[in-house]
């Protein structure tokens, strides 16, 4: 069975993510130490807490994450996607800087952006089945992503386009701004199922 290592920032609820990965026939494991990255088939950066809270926990993981990136598939969820960029309006610590660009505060119409919204598929991606509704809960995002970024899903919110699906197959790195583990049995779990399918290949 595919072993999925979920990095623990020690804040918020990892229970739904653990349940969701079990439901798609994988074996979720909570990772507290960088050395544990070597013994899993996939790594998940979860979407709980705030930017600085997550980055201060991820500091110790930074080198080992870079080492396994490209050979071990990774999935960032919400905040876990945001930390892959250089920095965020939400905090003062720097991000993992795997991708150029910053995470900005949403402009509106309502902040935080909470609830179900439409992800528009703009390029094919292994983890996404075309357009669909997913559950968002966030105040920050990569807004109006440039064409140099490997995104495959965007979500219109107010005047801007949120980068809602990052799809970098070459580096085996994926990210979603929404919460697949909260987005229902069909749409949400399907994203995780596809990710596990990619890991198996």
């Amino acid at each position: 069975m595919v072993k999925v290592g979920i990095i623990n920032y020690n804040v918020g609820n990892l229970g739904s993510l653990i349940n969701a990965f079990r439901r798609v026939d994988s074996e979720p494991i909570i990772i507290n130490e960088p050395s544990e990255l070597m013994s899993v088939d996939a790594v998940v950066l979860p979407g709980v807490g705030s930017f600085d809270a997550a980055m201060s926990r991820l500091g110790r993981f930074r080198d080992d994450l870079s080492k396994v990136r490209g050979s071990v598939p990774m999935l960032g969820i919400c905040l876990g996607l945001q930390v892959m960029f250089e920095g965020s309006d939400e905090g003062s610590l720097s991000g993992l800087s795997w991708y150029l660009g910053r995470v900005s505060r949403l402009g509106g119409p309502r902040v935080p952006h909470i609830g179900w919204d439409l992800v528009r598929s703009v390029r094919p991606c292994e983890i996404l089945d075309g357009n669909g509704y997913f559950y968002f809960m966030h105040s920050y995002a990569v807004i109006n992503p440039g064409n140099d970024l490997p995104y495959s899903g965007i979500t219109r919110y107010g005047d801007g386009n949120i980068l809602s699906v990052l799809c970098d197959k070459r580096s085996m790195t994926f990210g979603v701004q929404f919460h697949p583990e909260k987005s229902g049995k069909r749409q949400g779990l399907e994203v995780l199922r596809h990710f596990i399918g990619f890991v198996r290949k």
Binding site: N13, G15, S16, H179, K182, G184
Partner: peptide
């Protein structure tokens, strides 16, 4: 929480950070 695939809000009786933490750990989003 373990039966659901949609978000769960939890309220009532949360007085401090510890109570909130217990609710999150139990599965509140």
């Amino acid at each position: 929480a373990s039966a659901l695939n949609i978000p769960l809000g939890v309220g009532g009786g949360i007085r401090n950070l510890e109570d909130a933490d217990a609710a999150f750990k139990a599965g509140a989003d």
